[in-house]
């Protein structure tokens, strides 16, 4: 399962129940501005990704700059030291 699928599945399980993939029009789309995820959801997503992918995300990086959109999440997680791909 790709990282994209993991994120979409989490969004479906927690917020959009089967509609996440259709709601995310493109990788640049802001999750915050388009109601895909709220700020509390960011925290929950970060905690989930840490557990699911076995990575550590520094509190300094918990910012919309890194998580507000599919493209940003994919690029950010790929650059996390120690990340070796979905498990």
């Amino acid at each position: 399962m790709s990282l994209r699928q993991i994120v979409v599945e989490w969004l479906d399980d927690n917020y959009h129940f089967g509609e996440a993939a259709s709601l995310i029009r493109d990788d640049e789309m802001s999750f915050l501005k388009n109601g895909i995820l709220d700020s509390l959801g960011f925290v929950q997503l970060v905690l989930f990704l840490e557990k699911r992918l076995g990575i550590k995300i520094d509190r300094k990086q918990l910012s919309p700059k890194n998580f507000d959109g599919m493209g940003k999440i994919l690029a950010f997680v790929a650059a996390v030291p120690g990340y070796t791909g979905p498990r």
């Binding site: 925290v43 970060v46 905690l47 995300i57 509190r59």
Partner: peptide, 28 residues
């Protein structure tokens, strides 16, 4: 939660970014 995203946004964003986020993530 929606109310607090709409009311005194700059204080609540501040509390979220500098208190809630660091407190509930990382090594806290």
């Amino acid at each position: 939660p929606e109310l607090w995203r709409r009311w005194h946004i700059t204080l609540n964003t501040w509390l979220f970014e500098y208190v809630f986020g660091p407190l509930t993530t990382g090594t806290s």
